[in-house]
Amino acid sequence: MTVVNDNPKAATGKPAYDHAGRTAIANRLLKGSSARSYDPVVELDWDAPLEEGKYFLPPKVLSLYGTPLWDQMSEEQRIELSRQEMANVLSVGIWFENLLNRALLIRLMREDPAAATSHYELTEMGDECRHMTMFGKVIERSGARPYMMRRWERWAMLAMPAFMRGTFMWVVTLVGEELFDALQREMRTDPQLQPLVARLMQIHVTEESRHIGFARDGIMRRKPVRGRFETLVAANLHGLGGPAFKRLFTNPQMYKRAGIANPRQAAKIARRNPNFHEVTVKSFEPLSAFLRQAGLMGPVGEYLWRKAGFLP
């Protein structure tokens, strides 16, 4: 079986790509998907009323938590801010899962359609389609509205799949998935959280763990065979995610919709908030450790993540 971009021809004496190991991982994940996959339309109780006084994201992860501005807010205003921040995060999640699906579709045009890896990628796309549906329905059920991309952001997202190949493909996948996954694992059991949101997180964590495992495995199996240029690109370009996520997570529109008088000032306060800095560092910590292990934390990538507040 030949898989384009995952099978660089090894010169004599150099290691070859481990197709057998990659196939075994794909088959294991296919079995796991068959055993534990969820349809959000039936798994979530869409008719249950929202619980009075519960947050849509735990207070401690909200961007203004611990600031003087937070202290001035009433409990109702804080809950409304949590609703808007949740809608913003889920909107960003929809964009990135859309990006991943389009990149996988392009990739599948170069791959063997009978391969187990292709079958798992198709399964992953199905998961992501259900996640986008779930995110959109939770936004609607919460009483919020989604946050839309600007025109230049849409163009950037349309162009990116053409460049997502080899190691860089899987690194971008992890950047889009692991930042959310690390926090969701803690937030899903928070007693202050709306049950509907908690259930969303439980489903998402379960299914994303397979996607993350597949991407990490793809990176590590390419490690012995990837070239210098591939490593240079993959180890540094992911740093652009730092300033992008910093801006997305402190979108002034959230504060405007939450009724804060000066939304741009609120965004500046959030970006300087040491409590929120701790949250962003924690969200990036597992991915940062993995990228270092894989030899993919280049100087430019590290500088950009640190400048954006995702590294201590």
Rank of each mutant, 00 (worst) to 15 (best):
A26E: 05
A26V: 08
A26N: 04
A26T: 10
A26F: 13
N27D: 14
N27Q: 15
N27F: 04
N27Y: 00
N27K: 15
N27V: 11
R28A: 15
L29G: 01
L30Y: 00
L30T: 08
K31G: 04
G32M: 11
G32I: 04
S33H: 01
S33A: 15
S33C: 04
S34I: 01
S34D: 06
S34W: 00
S34L: 01
A35P: 01
A35C: 02
R36Y: 03
R36S: 11
R36T: 04
S37N: 13
S37P: 01
Y38E: 11
Y38A: 06
D39I: 00
D39N: 15
P40N: 12
P40L: 14
V41D: 13
V41K: 14
V41H: 11
E43K: 13
E43S: 15
L44R: 06
L44P: 08
D45W: 13
D45N: 15
D45L: 13
D45E: 04
W46N: 11
W46P: 10
D47N: 14
A48K: 07
A48Y: 05
A48F: 07
P49A: 03
P49D: 09
L50C: 11
L50S: 09
E51M: 06
E51F: 03
E51I: 00
E51S: 08
E52C: 09
E52N: 12
E52D: 14
K54E: 06
K54T: 05
K54W: 02
K54P: 03
Y55F: 15
F56A: 08
F56Q: 07
F56E: 05
L57E: 07
L57F: 12
P58Q: 06
P58D: 07
P59V: 04
K60F: 03
K60N: 10
K60G: 09
K60M: 08
V61C: 11
V61S: 13
V61E: 10
V61P: 09
V61D: 10
V61Y: 14
L62R: 03
L62W: 05
S63W: 09
L64D: 10
L64Y: 13
Y65I: 06
Y65D: 06
G66V: 10
T67H: 05
T67Q: 06
